[in-house]
Simulated scan of single mutants.
Amino acid sequence: MAFKTILTVVGTETGDADLKLAADLCEEVNAHLSVLVMALAAPPPIGEYAAVVSEAWLEERQADEEKLKARTEAVSASIASRAISTDISSTYAEIASADEAVGRRAHYADLIVAGPDLLAAGTLKEKVIEGALFSSGKPLLLVPAGSTATLNPKRIMVAWDSRFEASRAVHEARPLLAAAQEVRLVLVDPTTGEFQQGGEPGADAAAYLARHGAKVTVDRLPREGGSVGDVLRRHAVDTTADMLVMGAYGHSRLRERIFGGVTRSMLEEPPLPILLAR
């Protein structure tokens, strides 16, 4: 199995569900668990009242650091009994650079896992996802509440649009795809042509995956006035997929934030475990 080191990020206010989830995945595939305990620093006061509130700000930061230390010790105790190798680090990060801190830590992992606790953590969620997708070069596995996480999925759906990001996601997921019982390569309103998705959209990607041992079926689906995200969600349910593999942010982050997009839609409401890469 390709995933030998799995990273998860926990906050000082999050529970232990994500920690247990990541540890379970490590046990499933005999991987090492790396945990980053992160607290986000309050921004410094500015303006004419800065001098007045600076003392309270310093006290707040000191309390945050004490909370971070206590949380790190609690995490260490929580996973001490697990039959896996582990390492734990902590960081008190400024909000502006927190994503880069996540990315640096992820350089030494094969996969970043974000579970239900992190997905409900607001700013911390945003920083971890940004760091994973834009600063690490590693795939990110989102596991929403109520879903079953596994790194041995039987049925995998791949969102394919022939772009670089989709190719990266497929590359990162190759071991999972080769071991799955069924892989569905899904194209929504595909376009033919040399500079689009070829004469037979999906055929080249299916052949590539088949050479790696994947059992592939190509599904070309109409959008029918709905969003691409809605089509993918519906098909994932119809085919009882265990995991969705897709590229992230085919457009710029700014454009996705302003106009929306498939990535943003899936990040806000992941319908099942999603393996993302870019």
Score class of each variant (00 low, 15 high):
F3L: 04
F3M: 14
K4Y: 00
K4P: 00
L7F: 03
V9D: 06
V9L: 12
G11L: 07
E13H: 11
T14K: 07
D16T: 13
D16F: 14
D16C: 05
A23R: 05
D24Q: 12
E28Y: 11
V29G: 09
N30P: 01
N30G: 14
A31C: 10
H32F: 14
V35M: 08
V37S: 07
V37A: 09
V37Y: 06
L40F: 10
A42C: 07
P43W: 08
P44D: 05
E48Y: 09
Y49H: 05
Y49A: 08
A50F: 06
A51K: 11
W57Q: 02
W57R: 05
E59R: 13
E60M: 08
R61W: 04
R61L: 15
D64N: 13
E65R: 15
K69W: 02
A70Y: 11
E73T: 13
A74N: 12
V75Q: 13
A77R: 14
A77E: 13
I79Q: 08
I79Y: 10
A80C: 05
D87Y: 00
S89I: 02
S89A: 12
T91K: 06
T91P: 00
Y92V: 02
A93T: 05
I95R: 14
I95F: 04
E100N: 02
V102Y: 00
H107W: 10
Y108D: 08
D110Q: 06
D110V: 01
I112M: 14
V113I: 12
A114S: 14
P116F: 10
P116D: 11
L118Y: 07
A120Y: 01
E126G: 01
K127T: 04
F134V: 02
S135R: 11
S135I: 00
G137N: 04
K138Q: 14
L141C: 05
L142G: 07
L142R: 03
V143C: 13
T148I: 13
T148M: 08
A149P: 09
L151G: 10
V158D: 03
D161C: 02
R163Y: 00
A166N: 07
A169V: 09
H171Y: 09
E172V: 00
E172A: 15
A173Y: 13
P175T: 11
P175M: 07
A179H: 03
Q181H: 11
V183I: 07
R184L: 08
L185K: 08
G198H: 04
G199R: 03
E200S: 06
E200R: 06
E200V: 09
P201L: 13
G202K: 10
G202P: 09
L209Q: 04
A210W: 04
A214P: 09
V218L: 12
R220S: 15
R220G: 06
R220M: 14
L221N: 04
R223G: 10
G226I: 06
G229N: 13
V231K: 11
V231C: 14
L232I: 14
R234Y: 08
D238C: 01
T240M: 04
G247L: 06
A248W: 11
Y249H: 11
H251A: 12
S252V: 01
R253N: 00
L254R: 04
R255P: 00
I258F: 13
P270H: 04
P273I: 12
L275R: 01
L276G: 02
A277K: 01
